[in-house]
């Protein structure tokens, strides 16, 4: 099927197999390998991207479902060499170890802060429910998001 999608501000037209997931489309067709696949049941959140401004799990969306949508992936978060305040906060607070869940965490964090610029610790933890991290115990991810909120509100 023919689809047209805007990804990180650039519009692409591709003929894709209807069964291809958005995550596979990003990784295999567009070489945007920052979107990771840790499961295929929306369980781990490593594939989290933004579809029309809201976070979504790219492993359980078909590429054909996002025809006409605007997608943002981790590759679209930094402004050239300048990292997004959320990315900076993750580095500053050691909010990542192996880095595999990190793109999904950053995309989810952006969604949490978009909807709630001053979240409590509890709200952050609730917002992170759909994303697994096996390395950090979430401690420093929560701190990173708290720190990012402070910076973005300053």
């Amino acid at each position: 099927m023919q689809i047209s999608v805007t990804i990180n501000g650039k519009t692409y037209a591709h003929d894709v197999e209807p069964r291809i997931s958005l995550a596979q489309y990003l990784r295999e067709t567009l070489n945007l390998t920052g979107t990771h696949i840790g499961c295929d049941t929306s369980g781990c959140g490593s594939c989290t991207v933004h579809v029309d401004g809201a976070s979504a799990k790219a492993c359980t969306l078909l590429a054909v479902q996002v025809d006409g949508c605007e997608i943002k992936t981790i590759e679209g978060m930094a402004n050239g060499s300048e990292m997004h305040p959320i990315q900076e906060a993750f580095k500053e607070n050691h909010g990542l170890q192996c880095g595999f869940c990190t793109p999904g965490m950053v995309m989810t964090a952006a969604d949490i802060l978009k909807n709630n610029p001053n979240p409590s610790e509890e709200e952050i933890r609730h917002g992170l429910e759909g994303n697994f991290c096996r390395c950090t115990g979430y401690h420093n991810i929560v701190k990173s998001i708290q720190h990012a909120a402070e910076k973005m509100n300053a």
Binding site: G34, T35, T73, M77, A78, F90, K91, H94, L96, P103
Partner: peptide, 16 residues
């Protein structure tokens, strides 16, 4: 010391 690995991981540029 902040980690030098983080720049690539945070930008989705890790090489798994």
């Amino acid at each position: 010391v902040k980690r030098r690995e983080d720049n690539r991981f945070l930008k989705g540029a890790g090489k798994y």
